[in-house]
Design a binder for these strands. Structure first.
Lengths: 205, 205, 205, 205
DNA sequence: AATGAATGAGTATTCATTCAT
DNA sequence: AATGAATGAATACTCATTCAT
């Protein structure tokens, strides 16, 4: 009998504690906010004394940074995938919007932290996160720009404002999702994709 | 040389600083976030020892609450005015959207605090703020609902999702406004109004 | 028509505010204890802003000292009167005990403060209060001593211990008096006088 | 040279100081009174930074409460033992009185705190302490009551007043004991037992 | 890896006191 | 006499971090 990875032979979970710490941090930072959360809170969540946490982290900010690095990888992967579809501009916008919305809903806690707590990073780490966000905005903007050039968007559309508008609407998603009933993520993502496309394609007078 | 009113000859001022305190709190809470801001930060901003602040406030949370009460009045007044226009649904939606956007831009710091720091209120105060937000959402939802019933919106529009979507886009406004160049508030508000109407009226496929 | 002392012609009480302050201090110090009572508490009780109190007092400790000086006079008067009766020793002891008990009951708040808060005095003031207490003990001791010399007390009585014993019993009076029903002061004083005499005259084996 | 257990080579100690903290608190609260004593005072007495105290306690009131719980156990044990003697009423009263007096003298600091600082407890803790005191009074009262029923007390004795009287005399014991010379505890306890019995058995007129 | 004792700088808050008006 | 703004030192308590065991 071979021991399963992360499972000690005595039955106790012996997975990489580092990951436990990161997951606990996600839950705690999401619930209380980075500034209001204490190292003690996270230690409690992991089930360890707070002194022991420092085997896994260098500092509280380091822990936050690790969360961001961790999320950033997935985030960029999702953005890459969503950007590189082969379809006409508006269709790509729709799929991009769907993919983003869906991914947000699957990663609510991390996304909330990503959107709200980046101010507590400093130095290079802050730069990285801001860079990712700018990249994100740039991709969205370029998609919208293409749609406009292809004549599929409203002619009076301001690409930048539309980008920020949509970006904000997406970032607001996790905020109300918690409060609502059990709408399936697919339905919400589809609806949001539709709203985003409508924002761009427009209509109105 | 005559001594200025409220200015002692030794340089210390002895006047009522209630307003100063509130304004300093707005700046500090906006810059650092409520949890990370210290009473000392605010005292420094006012130019007073921290003990002296308690002449004007009961507690840090009380100070936050005062900010909310202060904003809530203006906020509701703006909402009332924007809701009670006499025009066809979509036109009313546009004007409502314009008024909100414009007001947000004029009150960025307070609006940011309003959107981000309400979690730190407790008890009755929290209830009041949540109530206002629900009222806000309800007004927006009812405008969108009227537009839909009047056949001016996309037939497949989900009124609730659209409401949250627009709400999020508005709340995201102050976040990027700081980073951008000097777009005049009127232009932004007009653009946002257009985007909001487009979201509802739709188009797309 | 001549204005009555302490009564302004407009009907408002205009008595000497100094006395109001002392009386308020008695109530507040009795209720909360000197250390836990704040100048603000006393100002509230007087109905004046705390800054205004300093027209009447020099400091918090000064206020406490004034209370002691105030009480000390009455206290010594009572002791003098009770000591100078003309009667056989045990009868004088009984009357002394009655007078003290009765006076305690009439001045519960001040007596409680006198018994508990003298530690917060410093310097000469402390000396004065300790002096009064020693005088008190000495008078009681001399009464008991006379009774013993007259052969009216138990022969094995230790005069000092008896003095402290009785002194403690008297000082405990205000403590439980508050908690009890409405026993008339006369009855309690009579009972205590009997107990004190019994303590000295004794019996037992 | 071998390092002493619990003594780091740099001079700082790293051992469990729960007991030290409680004992330091007894000394400090006794000396200054609970309200006037600061956490800093206690930390100084322990020889630790004040922040470190919170490794051992939850709050200042919690520390006081721990003292009371600590004392309460011993106190009740002593009362139980003293109550359950097998002898005629007055003899039991004498022994009870001796045991209490003696125990008081052995535990002066804690008894003083018990008698004076219970007002600073709140909630359930306050109730417990008041309950113990009432139990104490009830035991004393029942002993006195038995003596009276057995015809060994003065016929005009008021059992309640006698109980309070004796209770007060006992509580006053630690107050003067400090000021006096080195009377052996046994002699004082014997003397107090005699005084208590005399109070009840009486004589007088 | 984990513990838990200790640190030291920080936090919000209180409060006796001063003083210009 | 009275006000109320301001002080400055103190208070209880928190917390990220260190480190010997």
């Amino acid at each position: 009998m071979t021991p399963i990875k992360g499972q000690a032979t005595d039955g106790r979970q012996r997975r990489n504690r580092s990951e436990d710490v990161l997951e606990a941090a996600v839950r705690v930072f999401h619930k209380k906010g980075y500034a209001s959360a204490s190292i003690q809170d996270i230690a409690d969540e992991v089930g360890v004394l707070k002194g022991s946490l420092y085997h896994y982290i260098d500092s509280k900010e380091d822990l936050l940074a690790r969360l961001f690095e961790d999320s950033a990888g997935h985030f960029m992967a999702m953005l890459d995938e969503a950007s590189n579809l082969d379809a006409p501009p508006v269709e790509r916008l729709r799929r991009f919007a769907y993919a983003c919305s869906y991914w947000y809903l699957q990663n609510i806690e991390r996304v909330t932290i990503y959107a709200n707590e980046w101010k507590h990073l400093t130095g290079k780490r802050l730069k990285t996160v801001v860079g990712i966000r700018e990249d994100y905005e740039a991709r969205l903007a370029s998609l919208i720009g293409e749609a406009k050039e292809a004549g599929e968007a409203r002619p009076d559309l301001d690409v930048n404002f539309a980008t920020y508008f949509i970006f904000g609407a997406l970032n607001g998603l996790p905020e109300w999702y918690r409060r609502r009933g059990p709408d399936p993520a697919e339905r919400i993502a589809e609806s949001y994709a539709g709203l985003i496309v409508a924002t761009v394609v427009g209509g109105g007078k």
